[in-house]
Every structure is written in structure tokens, then in C-alpha cells.
Design a protein around this nucleic acid. Structure first.
Lengths: 149, 149
DNA sequence: CAGACCTCCGAATAATTATTAATTTATTTT
DNA sequence: AAAATAAATTAATAATTATTCGGAGGTCTG
């Protein structure tokens, strides 16, 4: 699944310097994602990753510091594509996603900067969203459902 | 001269979307700078420019939002290479530079974030630095001279 | 189910960028 | 001012990245 792979890409470039797409391909294959450079080129475009210069004159891929505008579309798309269900109890919303996609969807939630959210946490296929007051839970669940349509 | 060209590159990518180095080469040639793609590749590395995705899915070169660390070295080098003389009168420091390099050197001054500077302005080969108090001029002139060695 | 229409992806290849090796230009040293 | 050294540049090419084309699989609709 694409979003799970995207998530892994972000994880990989965060914890080590990845200089080329071939290198990233090898890393992903090691992690069980079978991809070619061509696909990674597309992933990088979707993720809007950039190649920056490191201190040592080498270059590496990095996540652009969010230009929170058009990126919202991507997040909404991630939502639609990965979220399976939204439930809640008291002030916690429990969101089920496709396996390996919780993180991507959770970052999307964070980036959307919705009101009344105290915090979020993502596992592999589940997100917990903690809301400030019980009374606001419904509003948020509605917002989520609106996003998913 | 390299720094004058660098400055023009920054100007060009600021005012229009430049997608490739070849394109940039053509623009520079139009502006009287005779260069090849190879040189531009090196310029881009020195300037730490990055290629980012535009809203329309294309890509363009952009100046990275300053990571004011190792970049200082670059500025100091610009100083050494482009500044011809430093003089002053009252609270104004007059810096002469190589033709076309005043802007680059001036940005360097700005980026160095020195104390007591009220403002700077650059022409083609001259920079005026306005200092807050007459008494601080000497200190700054010394700082400049130290940078140049 | 068949057909229309998606999305995702790989192989091959086109396009772009970085580097090498050689040359020219500029700077410093003697 | 000549020689020596360093810096900047180019042409050619290697390396890297993006795209095209085609196929596989999924979903929706009649």
C-alpha cells in the first residue's frame, strides 16, 4: 500500500541520510517494500520531498517544512483512502485505518490543525485522538466524516 | 565574477519559476553572464539552492530558508573576495566592493546579524551601513576588518 | 458478467544534474 | 615580470531522476 510506504520513506529519510532514490529503493526493499526507483520518484513528488545539501557537501532527501496550503488536499486524500472507521467514547476518538497507514493519517490530522484536539497517537492501524472536552467530540467526529464524505 | 552571477541567480529564481539548470543558463546568458550548465550546477550547490515542487506539480529552484550555521562561512568568504575598502564618516560606513557584488556582500552583512546596525543599502559596487551611534562605528569597522583579515 | 474507468506500478528510456579531466584565467610568490 | 599556485570554467560524460508506455488489478454501473 502506497501510504504505508510513504510513511516508511519519511521515517527512513528522517533517521539517516539518503542520497539517492536508488539508495532509498534498497532501504525500502530491505524493509519489505518491493519498489523500483521509478515509483520512488513518484513518491517523492507526492510527498514534496526536497534534496538539500548537508554540511559535508553531500546531499540528502528531506521533508519540506510544510507549506500548509495545497498540502491539505493531499491529507484529505490520505484520509479518504486510508480511514476505515471513526468511533468515540468520552473524549477519545478511535480511528481505524489500513494497516501501516495510521501514522500517515495521524500526521494529516495534526497538520489540519483542528480545534479542540489535545493530542494524537498512532499505532499501526489505529489512531487515538484526545479531545479537550466531551462536548466537542461530536463536532470533531463530524469534521472527520465530512472530510471522508 | 562568480558572486555577481550568484546574486543574479538569486534574483532570477526569486522573480520567476526556473525549472532546470539549462533554463537558468539561458536566462543568465541573456543577462550577460556567459555560463554553462556545469557551472550553474556548482553555483547551485554553493548557494545551497533546492528544487521544490510548485502548486502546479512542476518544480523550481528556490533559496533554502537560511540555516544560519555553516552559511556564515560562505558569507565570510564573500567578504574576503569582494570587499575592496571600508571607510566611514559619522555614523555611516561606506564599503566598496567589486562591481556587481555589493548586493551579495550586503546580504552577507545582513545575515551576520551584527549589533548596532540600523540599516544597509547596496548599489552596484557600494554599500552604505548606517550605524546607531557614532561611537559604535569604530567597533563595526573593526569587525568588518577582522572578517576580511 | 462485460465494459468503462480508475490507480498503481515496472521496464525502458528521456531528461536533467553532477563530476571528471583539461584548459583558461586570476592571484601570489620569488 | 616570470614562475608557481590556485580558482574558475568548459566539454564531455557519468550518474541520477522523471516520464512514457503498457499492463495488472480494483471498482462501479448497466
Amino acid at each position: 500500500m502506497k501510504y504505508s510506504r510513504h510513511n516508511k520513506i519519511l521515517e527512513l529519510i528522517h533517521k539517516q541520510e539518503v542520497e539517492t532514490q536508488e539508495e532509498l529503493a534498497k532501504l525500502l526493499i530491505k524493509n519489505g517494500y518491493n519498489v523500483t526507483q521509478a515509483t520512488i520518484s513518484r513518491d517523492i513528488k507526492e510527498l514534496k520531498l526536497i534534496k538539500i545539501q548537508t554540511a559535508t557537501g553531500k546531499s540528502k532527501y528531506a521533508a519540506e517544512t510544510h507549506s500548509y496550503q495545497s498540502i491539505t488536499d493531499r491529507f484529505i486524500k490520505i484520509f479518504k483512502d486510508t480511514i476505515l472507521s471513526v468511533n468515540y467514547s468520552n473524549n477519545i476518538i478511535i480511528i481505524k485505518t489500513l494497516t501501516g497507514c495510521a501514522n500517515a493519517a495521524c500526521e494529516a490530522i495534526d497538520a489540519l490543525n483542528l480545534d479542540n484536539i489535545l493530542g494524537t497517537i498512532a499505532g499501526d492501524n489505529t489512531i487515538f485522538v484526545v479531545v479537550d472536552e466531551n462536548i466537542n467530540v461530536n463536532k470533531l467526529v463530524h469534521q472527520f466524516n465530512d472530510l471522508i464524505q
